[in-house]
Amino acid sequence: MIYLIDDKKERQKNLGWGKDKLLNYKDILMPIHTIEEIEKVKKIMFSIENIVLYHESFFDNPINLHKKSSSEIKQDLINLSDKYRIIVVFFSGSISSKNIINKRASLPVSTFYKNLAFFLDSYRILKQDIDLNQIAFGNDFKREKLLELKLKIWNLLFDKKNPDLFVNNEELNILLDEFQKITSLTLQIKDITNEFLKFQINKIYETNE
């Protein structure tokens, strides 16, 4: 079972997840909006065969007040996920980038709801073998991930003072590392021009399409 813990019903509805759509997945998805609903399922929820989708500020809502702070509860959830290898997806309106580590993902709220249907459909087939990239990047996740990386690299190169000579900086370095990791290919980055870097990336991107 997948537990969707989100106190914000209005936001859910506006992002395309009203009551009817949630009901379409009732065989695999249990929406939870209040602390009372959590109390009913908390003993069975944290199990390796389940998945928890959790709005980070759930316990900041005055109707869901808990003796622990929301940040302590989140830390507990992270620890549970790491210890028992339970898949947990965190989402929030304060998260600006997509992040996947071990069995955990951390996503902007709009990305989460945009890709939720793909994720649920895949879960029906794959169960716990589901790839968290699916909820972070959608169905064609490898292509989407590379496209996002390419866009970030292009944006960083766009405003360079010297457009000809490629100068690596810390942000670019991390993005290029990530690009090479995903594609398992090595980029030549020493003594090259921006154009040659773009050429290499485009070539790899086209091969991966």
Partner: peptide, 17 residues
């Protein structure tokens, strides 16, 4: 990060907030 007004300076504002 918990105060409703100050939280709106660290989060995008959704319909519930």
């Amino acid at each position: 990060n918990q105060n409703i007004f100050l939280k709106s300076t660290t989060h995008n504002i959704d319909s519930n907030l």
